[in-house]
């Protein structure tokens, strides 16, 4: 089975400080991987592989021009209401696709990272997340997965499949104005804006525009009076402990016991 249709799903991002519309880096990585795979496959054999870049939202969104500059020659827009759930309408348009590529987390909306999972479930496609690189094999897609602490895992997955790209994918994003000027954004004509979500897992959120540090959940301690007094009078030292005295051996021991106390080393 060989790949014929690849889709890269791209979302609209925004700069966290200026609020300016921009590409979502995670999706750009996925799209760039798709572009590279497409051109590799087309160079190898004659039957042409097609990469479609699809965005669910508004065609006039300024963020989309970034994707053109980053290499998409055309972006197909599925009209969607702002904040509307796009799973159903996307799924409708992603039948008969071999590979769906997308970033791990958007930077607009809820950024839950759930969309690929909902799509895969709905379409009954396989899914591999945290992918760094992909290549085509005879039976499907071979993906290299990111695991923490320098671990990598190779897995083979059958198509059709949803591939979720990890933010550390070794991809160089290249923003070129000429591509932006030559690219096209077109709208799926037949689609009407999608209805309210049927997925209750997208719960009602109340948003606050002010960002504060989260409060850590702590077990209520039934402490002795002495301990309570201690914790009330000795405030958490902001600068951390400073060890001035002792010889080098003792100082080294201080560091070692700190590392062990906080389980930062496993010996």
């Amino acid at each position: 089975m060989s790949i014929k249709n690849i889709v890269a799903l791209v979302s609209a991002g925004r700069h966290p400080i200026s609020g300016q519309a921009r590409h979502c880096r995670n999706d750009s990585l996925a799209m760039t991987i798709g572009l590279a795979l497409t051109s590799d496959l087309n160079a190898e054999n004659a039957n042409s592989v097609n990469l479609k870049v699809i965005h669910a939202g508004h065609a006039k969104n300024a963020a989309l021009t970034d994707y053109l500059a980053l290499g998409a020659s055309q972006i197909d827009v599925i009209p969607a209401l702002e904040n509307a759930d796009i799973v159903d309408s996307l799924a409708e348009n992603l039948k008969n696709v071999d590979v769906i590529l997308m970033g791990s987390r958007a930077e607009s909306g809820q950024d839950s990272g759930l969309l690929p999972y909902l799509l895969a479930e709905k379409l009954n496609y396989s899914l591999v997340a945290n992918v760094l690189t992909i290549k085509q094999t005879t039976e499907g897609i071979e993906a290299l997965q990111f695991l923490p602490k320098g671990k990598r895992r190779s897995v083979k997955v059958t198509m059709p499949t949803v591939i979720v790209i990890h933010p550390l994918a070794p991809v160089q994003l290249r923003h070129a104005y000429a591509r932006q000027a030559n690219g096209h954004i077109s709208q799926f004509a037949t689609q009407t804006p999608t209805q309210e979500s049927k997925y209750s897992c997208t719960v009602e959120w109340q948003t606050q525009s002010t960002i504060r540090k989260p409060n850590k959940l702590k077990a209520k301690e039934n402490k002795s009076g002495h301990a309570r007094m201690l914790s009330a009078t000795v405030s958490e030292n902001k600068g951390g402990a400073v060890v001035n005295d002792g010889n080098s051996v003792e100082k080294a021991q201080v560091i070692l016991s700190y590392l062990r106390e906080h389980r930062l080393i496993n010996f």
């Binding site: 925004r14 607009s108 950024d111 839950s112 959120w205 109340q206 606050q208 409060n215």
Partner: peptide, 23 residues
Amino acid sequence: HVIELNNVQVANYQLGGTSLALT
């Protein structure tokens, strides 16, 4: 991506980390 929770609600960052959301 829940960053804060208690008996009644949970919170996470949304909109690219620019907004705190509660449910």
